[in-house]
Amino acid sequence: MYAQMVKSTGKGVKSLEEMEPEERHFQEKVDADIRIEPRDWMPEGYKKTLIRQIGQHAHSEIVGQLPEGNWITRAPTLERKMILLAKVQDEAGHGLYLYCAAETLGISRDEMTEMLLSGKMKYSSIFNYPTLTWADIGAVGWLVDGAAIMNQVPLQRTSYGPYSRAMIRICKEESFHQRQGYDIMMKMAKGSEAQKRMAQDALNRFWYPSLMMFGPSDANSVHSEQSMAWKIKINTNDELRQKFVDQTVPQAEYLGLTIPDETLKWNEEKGGYDFAEPDWDEFFDVLKGAGPVNNDRLEARRKAWDDGAWVREGLLAHAEKKRASKVAAE
């Protein structure tokens, strides 16, 4: 997902009986679906895990601007250009909302940015794949946003108030993102031979990276178990991946495109598709920085940050001058 492999305390989940009164009170509120707010008492591990998870999610939105932004100047019509620009702009907005949610936990946006740029914090593996053709913009909207929505919809109910509110706003705004992607795919899949080829090629390249977005199976992960007890993770990775595949297969069929998985088969018994796992070695490589465009992505973010320093400093200096002269006048 946008936040993949977030580590929690690494210890097992405590029972209520094992907890000190404060933590017990906290856990009971979480269990009763009462939101935890910034000034409420919370376990250190909860706070740390949330910072990692929300931070990673925010970074993903920001880095996620790049693969789609890559096509804004080349979009084929004025309308497509405006739609794409509005969508990539939304992603900046979503990054902003999420950073603000993390900031309520006592970390600053600048600190998180420095951690992203130094490689200390990660972003989703999916954004280390390039967008080569216009159909990729369709595939990203359809598959990548489709996968993201799977995770974000349940997170609206997450236990941490500011995170939950950010997710509610994001889900509302994102409702058009997946549709615009599918709309591009429909045009391409019903278009010329070249367009059809482009569409199939985009699906071929983005299918497995999209499945990787949910992260490796975490059925036996202590981190996931703790995060689920804290309600900052609502479903297991496998549950969401299955749901995504079940939803996407008929959509691909409607387009007349073939999902690049020969083993894909409806399983009547489980009421879902059987499908092939992505190559998890590739996933770990990409996460570690060995993806095709990892360097380009971080370099672009570093450049934006470094080149922008004088602007941020200049505007702040001006604001301080104004404040000082106002105080002097009073």
């Binding site: 946006r109 509110r165 404040r323």
Partner: peptide, 12 residues
């Protein structure tokens, strides 16, 4: 209340 953001001054 709809959220927060960063700015150098109130006008911005």
């Amino acid at each position: 209340h709809v959220g927060s953001l960063h700015a150098p001054d109130a006008e911005t």
